[in-house]
Amino acid sequence: MSTPGTIRLDVHLTGADADAALRADVARGLTARPKELPPKWFYDARGSALFEKITELPEYYPFRTERALLADSVADIARSSGADTVVELGSGSSTKTRLLLDAFAAAGTLRRYVPQDVSESALRGALDDLRAAYPRLALHGVVGDFTTDLHRLPGAEPGGRRMIAFLGGTIGNLLPGPRDAFLRHVRSVLAPGEQLLLGTGLVTDPDLMVAAYDDAAGVTAEFNRNVLHVLNRELGADFDVEAFSHVALWDAENEWIEMRLRAGRDMRVRVAELDLDVGFAAGEELATEVSAKFRTEVVDAFVVAAGFEPTRRWVDPERRFALNLLTAV
């Protein structure tokens, strides 16, 4: 049982683990047809700073829409949940979650917060900030990958239950197969009656959606190209980063935004640490991210298939984002 005011950090993902994962992802992705890279490699220190800038852009409605919806709904979410432990996957700086923590604390149920992230340094910083803001709250950070390490999350407190928060529309970055496997994984670590609060971007005007991922200032383009800087630094690659242009488009059939990097000329790239040579033809594209947007009936179908019951849903007035409270059955 957690003691009020205690702080703990469990590290299940080391720098060596991250390096091995990067090597495996790059070797696989750059030899695939078409070429691809997972979006998690955007987020070194520079990439994380660029993403913070993206959240402040006028075109990037998802962040501010979810934050406003969360601010309007947190008291209702806390009352509907009644959980005593809030777990956040991919917590980062935990800024949006403070809205949840305040609401659960006001409801009188909150005893523990469990932030999970791949970055040990980000978690340590977040825990220090949270200790100052919530001196009586038990804090238990977990460094790990939410796609593989959920079984390492701490269990429920005696007589209590957990609510896992997965916000930011991040579920949309997973293709349907991995998305469904991830949700089944989440369900497997929850007891019946425990909950998942899932943030989902909704299908809206295509021009609005594309602009959110292709801003006029070019910040998202720089964020997209940052993955090449990461490969150059970490794996001794020699990408000519500026020779790749940013592409964002709406795939109406799959109902997702695709981000790609397009080669501006024929080139050959050496990845020294992998002893790998990769050719790019002029105009060839490297897929870096999808961001699926959903219809509410589609969300209901895939969460039910994973073993959850849709319990409550909150949607912003313009129907661009939804918060879904799901109960494990």
Rank of each mutant, 00 (worst) to 15 (best):
R152E: 03
V142N: 09
P178D: 04
E157V: 02
T148G: 10
G144W: 01
V142Y: 02
H140Q: 11
Y134L: 02
R162H: 08
G141K: 00
D145K: 14
R152L: 15
A138M: 04
G168A: 05
N173K: 13
L174Q: 06
A165R: 05
L183C: 08
M163V: 12
R184T: 11
M163P: 02
L139M: 02
D149S: 09
G141P: 00
H151F: 09
L139N: 00
G172E: 08
G160P: 10
H140G: 05
G144F: 02
Y134N: 06
L139Y: 01
P154L: 13
R179Q: 14
G177A: 14
P158Q: 10
F146D: 03
L167A: 04
P158W: 10
P176Y: 06
G168S: 07
G168P: 02
H185W: 05
A138E: 02
A138F: 01
D180V: 03
P178Y: 10
G168H: 01
R179M: 14
G144M: 06
P135W: 13
P178W: 10
L139I: 01
L167C: 03
P135K: 11
F146H: 12
R179H: 09
G155W: 01
R152Y: 00
G169C: 06
G172R: 07
V143W: 08
F182H: 13
D180Y: 02
R136S: 14
P176G: 03
G168L: 02
P135A: 07
G155H: 00
V143Q: 01
P135T: 12
L167T: 04
A165G: 09
L175F: 10
L153I: 12
G169V: 07
L174F: 15
G168T: 04
G172Y: 07
A181M: 10
R179P: 06
R161C: 05
V142S: 11
R179V: 06
M163W: 01
Y134T: 04
P135F: 10
R152K: 15
G144D: 10
T147G: 00
I171W: 07
H151L: 10
A156N: 12
N173H: 15
I164L: 11
L153V: 08
D149F: 08
I164D: 01
R136V: 05
L153D: 04
H140D: 15
